[in-house]
Design a protein around this nucleic acid. Sequence first.
DNA 1: CTGAAAGCGCTTACAG
DNA 2: CTGAAAGCGCTTACAG
Lengths: 326, 326
Amino acid sequence: MSDVSIKVVASLAGVSIATVSRTLNQPDTVTESTRLKVEDAIRRTGYRPNRAARSLRKGHSNHFLVALPSVGHPHLTELIRDIRAAAQASNYSISVAERRDGDLDVAEAGAIIASRQADGVILVGSNTAFVQLGAGRQRSTVVLPAVTIDNFAAAGDATRLLLEHGHKRIGMISGHRDSSVAHDRESGYLEALGDAGLPADATAIEDGDYTIAGAREATRRLLNRREAPTAIFCASDEMAIGCIHELKTAGLLVPADVSVVGFDDIRYAAVCDPPLTTVRQPTGQIGSRIVNQLIDALTTGERPGDEQEAVRHELVQRCSVAAAPQ
Amino acid sequence: MSDVSIKVVASLAGVSIATVSRTLNQPDTVTESTRLKVEDAIRRTGYRPNRAARSLRKGHSNHFLVALPSVGHPHLTELIRDIRAAAQASNYSISVAERRDGDLDVAEAGAIIASRQADGVILVGSNTAFVQLGAGRQRSTVVLPAVTIDNFAAAGDATRLLLEHGHKRIGMISGHRDSSVAHDRESGYLEALGDAGLPADATAIEDGDYTIAGAREATRRLLNRREAPTAIFCASDEMAIGCIHELKTAGLLVPADVSVVGFDDIRYAAVCDPPLTTVRQPTGQIGSRIVNQLIDALTTGERPGDEQEAVRHELVQRCSVAAAPQ
DNA sequence: CTGAAAGCGCTTACAG
DNA sequence: CTGAAAGCGCTTACAG
């Protein structure tokens, strides 16, 4: 357990270090009897190959880094879990880093790959993009196409649901304005309202910063408008929870007075009061596709096509939407 | 950005690789003019030292692994964030691993340290214990004392709050039975009831598995008892949220019919309906103390004393507790 | 202050 | 099937 290297194992087993290494990495190129001896020596010493040495020699780490805007959100947590599961299935490990800035930082990702801390970086958040290192002689950092739902369409669906319930004054609580997914969701909302023939001054977007506190303030601002909305579309469930709380604090009933739609379908959505109508993202599919694309690119050395991989969202209807009050 | 090693930088700057290394690691042992040349070469090449090579040479990675029972819980997420912040302040990075089994696995932690993947492992969950590798000639894996609140006392406080409100039938929804923190919280609950002179058959503990779904089932079981409780102490806010939802589904009012107390003070606790009374754990303090103890042990090579570091909990009273119904 | 050289612990052609 | 040797990219005594 303490300081055992491959040398110790080799001498204990009475073989060369090369044979120990082969036993570990290509067991079928070794006689069964030697394999047994080596395995026994490994067991007795508690030997574990030094990862740094292996990475240095092999030129890659079998490790990905996942960079997120904020680790705390249940939706992202779920995505991480699914990414980790897919990676582990292919013998890759992952680690998670939190980054403060709103949008993806390709340079930063490149630096991490350059230092060989990871073979690839998955940038989550603003746009589920990711970056990877071409292996072999020629190394270069390439950006792979994002794997994501169609945020524009999903936001449109959410907004249309509200429209179908007769709402004419529909507010939106959005995330950071600078991120592309926030932008797509706002556009989807805006277009749905436009298509319904609502006047432009019927639109009302407030920034909720993807936080509970931010959403509460945004809700108050919405409520203070000349014509307060009868429905609010929130760009995340986290914000929807804050929004509903603020609505209740203001003495309003959800959904009798104000309907609310969220986004993500985090596990608290179903046990909200009222249970939240929301847009579900298939994190399992997203995670495994990202990881498989990364590994494919790494293995074949080819960069895949540029087309975004679309993944289906789903509108989950629960109890937070009702007909517009008269 | 692509395949630049220390050699490339050295030749570009017209110095030896040793000088490049010194410029990076001990800049004051180098003339300013050479430092400038080297820094310029680094900038132009986008050079990043290979982490694996550095770890291999130095014998340590400046990296900790945090092992958790389940990554998703907001309370643990917050603890991770605080651990990461403390580690970064001392120039350590961390990665997070999820482990399935209930209790801490010292052997597993030792294996990770043996493979030099990390200089230390922090085991969170069952008991905030952690493990570390003595550096220098003699290496050995040592277990450091846990940094934790007094779970026994905290559970007692929560239970006594209910008692003070006149409740005589108080149920508890606990986590995995095999973990030590679950055990401590159950003991605290039990002792508070005993001290209040309640009969032993007034105690009612159900396992909620630390999940929303588990807590909902546990709540149903509690409700089906001959004498249904008028108050429920949940060993996590996550479970309290599930419990409240189930209570409402059963047509009960919280807190008029049943009072609920949670544990952790996750960020959803304040925006629950009703806002949740709960026990807060100081994750910031816990995180920084763990990390500092680890680094101290690593730096000095001494193992600290055996006494657990106690850290204060706090009962946060909101609106989910009321007087027992007549 | 700087460079040449050793060596961290592995893996992998290359011989045999 | 097995071993000796080179080498991955660094850092650090050791000379000068």
